[in-house]
């Protein structure tokens, strides 16, 4: 296994862009902290690139399962009042959100 740790993607993170993608508003101070910290962590994590993984299949589940299904039958739903009681704002039995800028 080669251990050439110089092999890595150059770490250049636009934290502000990543934060927008993750829908997290950051203060200027936070931005500075993460700009300093994240490249260090990424740099450590990027060590995975030093391993020769040619021909190795990625594992996304620790258990080798396939075809887990439920049958198409209807079960109980939640009580609407109980559901809505947890919402920050409701109207006409629906959840209220401010103006939506983008269309999906």
């Amino acid at each position: 296994m080669p251990e050439d740790e110089s092999v890595s993607v150059p770490v250049d993170i636009d934290i502000a862009r990543v934060a927008r993608l993750a829908r997290i508003s950051l203060t200027g101070t936070e931005l500075g902290i993460y700009e300093a910290q994240l490249p260090v962590i990424i740099d450590h994590a990027a060590r995975v690139q030093a391993l020769d993984t040619a021909g190795i299949e990625p594992t996304s589940h620790p258990l080798p399962l396939a075809n887990v299904f439920r049958t198409d039958s209807v079960g109980d739903c939640l009580d609407r009042d109980e559901v809505l009681s947890q919402a920050p704002e409701t109207q006409d039995h629906q959840f209220v959100v401010p103006r939506i800028m983008d269309e999906a």
């Binding site: 994590a45 990027a46 995975v48 391993l51 993984t53 190795i56 299949e57 990625p58 594992t59």
Partner: peptide, 10 residues
């Protein structure tokens, strides 16, 4: 990153 990490997992 992610895919390579999953291969390391293997």
């Amino acid at each position: 990153y992610y895919a390579q990490a999953q291969r390391v997992r293997t």
